[in-house]
Simulated assay, not measured.
Amino acid sequence: MHNIVNLIVNKSRDSDPGLEASMYRAKAQHPLSDARSPLPEEVNEAMWRLFVAIGTFWETVADPTPFRSRLQSFMANRIALMPLYADYYAIAKRVIDDLVVECGSEAAAYERLFTSKDAAKSPPTTPLALTRQSVSNEFLTLQMALGVLICTES
């Protein structure tokens, strides 16, 4: 059995000499992602505030601070795979800013974003729905994937 595995591995290396060297360095990236400018700092900060608000509203994160770099990596990877996400994040910032003006406070704005029936309509046809489905829900999913859920007693 060991000889068969060696034969297969060596055959793969012979057919592609760069395979072994490159297999751990490959990064999935959309061809247009290099042409994108980095997200403006105010968009990054708005997305961080959204991430924190999700944890507060849904009671999923006791202290989100350790996950800030993970959020930044998640966003960078999303943009690398699909550059349109940079626009989604910019739109989300504008939607939240508009909701704060409409609702009078950040807490009320986030509550509307997280609970509005209009934001749940699929496929998203409004900036509010796009923000909820392509940004907010994904950040909530990220929190769950990171295992940051905390239990609360009823």
Rank of each mutant, 00 (worst) to 15 (best):
R112T: 07
F114Q: 06
L39G: 01
E138P: 00
I96K: 05
Y88T: 05
Q29K: 12
A35Q: 15
V95F: 07
P40S: 00
D98G: 10
K27M: 04
S22V: 03
A109E: 06
F114S: 09
L84S: 13
Q72M: 06
L140D: 05
S33D: 08
L32E: 10
L32N: 11
S105W: 06
M47C: 11
T141W: 00
P66M: 07
S33I: 04
S33F: 05
A90P: 00
T125N: 09
M23N: 05
T141I: 02
N77P: 01
A120I: 01
L71G: 01
H30K: 05
A108C: 07
V135F: 05
R94L: 13
S154Y: 12
A90W: 03
A86D: 03
S69F: 02
T126Y: 06
F67C: 13
A53F: 00
E102L: 02
L113F: 00
Q143E: 09
P38A: 12
P38Q: 08
D16A: 14
R112F: 08
P64N: 06
A119G: 10
R132A: 06
T65M: 06
P17M: 00
K11S: 15
D63I: 11
R94S: 15
E41D: 11
I4V: 15
Y110F: 11
R70M: 10
S22T: 09
C151I: 11
Y88N: 13
R78M: 12
P127C: 04
E111Y: 07
D63C: 08
R70P: 02
T65L: 09
V100A: 04
L19T: 02
A145S: 09
A21K: 15
Q143H: 09
I54G: 03
S122F: 15
H30W: 02
D16L: 10
V5N: 09
D87V: 13
F114W: 08
P127S: 07
A145N: 10
I91H: 02
K93M: 14
R25C: 05
V95A: 04
T115H: 05
A108Y: 03
L84M: 12
T131Y: 00
A109I: 07
Y89K: 02
T125G: 12
E111G: 06
D16E: 13
R25H: 09
S116E: 03
P17A: 00
I8S: 04
Y24L: 08
I54C: 06
S12R: 11
R25A: 06
P31A: 04
P83Q: 07
L142P: 02
